[in-house]
Simulated scan of single mutants.
Amino acid sequence: MLLTINIGNTNILCGIWQDQSLARTERFPVSDISRLDTFFASPSQIEAVLVGAVNPHAAQDVLDAASRALNCPILAAGRDFEVPVRNRTRFPDRVGIDRLLNALAAYHRTRKPCVIIDIGTAVTIDAVNGAGEFLGGAIMPGLAGALSTLHSTTALLPHIDPARDRDIPVLGRDTEGAMSSGVFWGIVGAVEKISEMLRREAPGAVTFLTGGDAERFAPHLGGIDHTVAALALEGLRLAYLAR
């Protein structure tokens, strides 16, 4: 079995692979790292731990916890094994490993150009061409980040828990409702428009939706071909096998 761990800014996504199947996944906050213990319950069955991270502090905590609990290789993508995707951005070393893992997994599924939307703490919308090369894309705040910025950069706008309302009407009837509407539907509109524009850069692209907030936004987004919550975990497994 392979234990794959994708560490974001807010959440950790873990998955156990048995051969080519993802047998179990769990997402939890980076502040609740003790929940990793349930994945360490059968240490003799784990062949390797594969970690992809955009949060260096949390990544070190995870690597340390895995080292204490397991007697197997504990490998970080980008440090111990490469992500085999040609990166055609201006500064390849600055691209988040999660974006490359998503690109690898999406292209492996389709062998066609791809647009990949990852909605979490940040929203990334990226393009992959027909040769599987990562072209770049767009980055914008996610739901929690945008709401937090409105609160922290203004005198009177309140703090809002992004999980407060699952159904957000466009017409906000109070300040909190207007903030939630502007941010939520603003993300929907921006994602749809940017995706449309990126598909012109990668004609015939297949569009993927992933990330911690993917399921929440999926019903409201047009043009999505596949919603895959654990796309980065697929990328970790593929990158490890290709080393």
Rank of each mutant, 00 (worst) to 15 (best):
L143A: 04
I117N: 04
V191R: 12
A190N: 12
F184T: 06
T153C: 08
V188N: 01
T110F: 02
R94I: 09
G189M: 00
S148Y: 01
K193S: 05
I160Y: 02
L171E: 07
E196Q: 14
V123W: 14
K193E: 11
E192M: 15
G96I: 03
E196H: 12
R109S: 10
M179R: 09
G78W: 12
G78N: 06
I160F: 02
I97W: 11
G182R: 09
L100Y: 09
M179A: 09
S195T: 15
V183K: 08
W185Y: 12
E192A: 11
T124C: 05
E201T: 10
A146M: 15
V83Y: 04
G96W: 10
V170F: 06
T124L: 05
A103E: 04
L100H: 08
L198E: 01
E82Y: 12
G172L: 13
L104I: 02
R109Y: 09
H159M: 15
P158L: 10
D80F: 08
V115K: 11
N129F: 10
R164E: 14
T175C: 00
I187Q: 09
I168V: 15
D93L: 09
G177N: 03
P92M: 10
R166F: 13
R86D: 13
G120H: 09
R166W: 10
R164I: 02
G186E: 04
A103D: 04
R79K: 13
F91V: 12
H108K: 05
L147I: 07
G177R: 02
T124Q: 07
Y107G: 05
A131K: 13
R164Q: 12
A146T: 13
D165R: 15
V123S: 07
D167G: 05
S180K: 14
I119G: 02
C114N: 11
R173S: 07
M179V: 11
G186N: 05
V115M: 10
H108W: 02
S148V: 00
G189T: 07
I168W: 15
N129Q: 05
W185E: 06
T89P: 04
R173D: 11
L100T: 08
G78T: 00
V83T: 13
V123G: 11
R86F: 14
T124G: 06
I125K: 12
S180H: 09
K193M: 01
L198F: 02
D167K: 12
I125D: 04
T154L: 03
L198M: 00
W185K: 08
L143V: 03
H151A: 15
M140C: 11
L171I: 15
N129V: 12
G142C: 02
M140F: 09
A163F: 03
D174H: 11
S195G: 14
S152G: 00
T175P: 00
E82M: 07
P141Y: 07
G136M: 07
H151F: 09
A138R: 00
G142W: 02
I97T: 13
A105M: 06
H151V: 10
P169N: 10
R164W: 04
F91E: 06
W185V: 03
G145H: 14
I97F: 09
M179C: 10
R111D: 01
G189C: 00
A127G: 13
G132H: 14
G136P: 06
I125M: 12
E192G: 04
L156R: 15
V183Y: 14
I119L: 08
T89R: 01
P113N: 00
L100D: 07
M197W: 14
A155S: 15
